[in-house]
Design a protein around this nucleic acid. Structure first.
Lengths: 189, 189
DNA sequence: AGGCCGATGTCAGTTACTGACATCACTGTA
DNA sequence: TACAGTGATGTCAGTAACTGACATCGGCCT
């Protein structure tokens, strides 16, 4: 007989998302999350650094393929095209999880603390993409700027993707937003 | 005889910046800040929503001129040029406060919680610029993307500006970064 | 003179988060 | 088979951010 049910971290994440969605992030205590997962508050903090982080554990699952795609882009590819490959890789990760992304984003949109955490995750993702570009011998500030532009495109496309009315694929929205960014920075109206 | 010294909020902000710089953000308690300002902890929270916010009260002093500049850009100006006017207005606000910006940025760079707050302030600034563009009849997603590109440029230029080795003016760094972004999104290497 | 106002103080309470130590099924080894 | 070690969890006490309720009292208005 096993001493503990396996998958404690996953149970905590599920319980947290459910409770945040049901009654709101602020109205949920960590003790309640742990309780619903059949654990104690102390154990929650052994798995997640704080009450926000429980919603963001999947960040590396997104970052790794994106960075790899930038690194593996053809040597002849311009920086913006390497980053675009990265964005496509990210889209491939998210595409099958649209319902999950949607409820998660609803929860985040309802609370500034969670938005802050989301923003720093995106900023770190951008920094990782910039690093990947530097490994491709792209100098600064081009590396930082290209990565930041990519993140901006990703963000805008993602927001439209989780929007109920939109039914297009994330990849398509990324291509479209990228085209829009190029048009707009060219000074064309 | 006055009952209280005036300028409580300013005293609190100064005390907080000093203490954060001296011994670090985490190692500083709100009680210590209030004490140094000759006030109580409760009063601190009447002036600032939380321990982070005390470093960001100047955000609106930056946002207002930037938004105004976007709105007042010539009607013929393309979105990216209107945003660029906004960035120049922001640079004009920061230019005379370089030493202050530098110590403040050092403090922020040393702590993730403060970085999160900084990022959400920048995101809100970007949203305000996007709103200003929409008032200029710029449609979405062009408005969001142009604003985000502007914020990216501002961020990169600002980081270089507070860098000790750089001695150029913030405006110049913004122009340069903007040119770099245009080059990079055009796919030119 | 008297009363209202607004910034501050006082105090008690909640909750996120941390460190120290205990527990005990499982695992490998003698 | 006995037994020591490991690792995930529980227990408990403590700190500090933040909040609500109520008291205080100079200054201002009438």
């Amino acid at each position: 007989m096993t001493r503990w049910e396996p998958g404690a971290a996953e149970r905590l994440a599920q319980a947290a998302l459910d409770l945040y969605a049901e009654r709101g992030y602020e109205q949920t205590t960590v003790a309640e999350i742990a309780n619903r997962a059949g654990l104690t508050e102390r154990t929650f903090f052994r798995h997640y650094a704080d009450k926000r982080e429980v919603l963001f554990s999947g960040a590396s699952a997104l970052q790794q393929p994106m960075v790899a795609a930038v690194e593996n882009a053809p040597a002849s590819a311009a920086p913006i095209d390497a980053v675009t490959d990265g964005l496509r890789a990210g889209a491939a990760v998210l595409e099958p999880r649209r319902p999950f992304s949607r409820t998660r984003q609803t929860v985040i949109a309802a609370n500034p603390e969670l938005q802050e955490r989301e923003l720093i995750k995106l900023a770190r993702l951008g920094a990782a993409l910039a690093d990947a570009l530097r490994r491709r011998a792209v100098p600064d500030p081009a590396a930082s700027l290209t990565a930041a532009a990519g993140i901006a495109v990703f963000r805008v496309a993602f927001e439209r993707w989780v929007d109920e009315s939109e039914s297009r694929q994330l990849t398509d929205l990324i291509e479209e937003s990228l085209g829009e960014l190029k048009a707009v920075t060219a000074g064309v109206r």
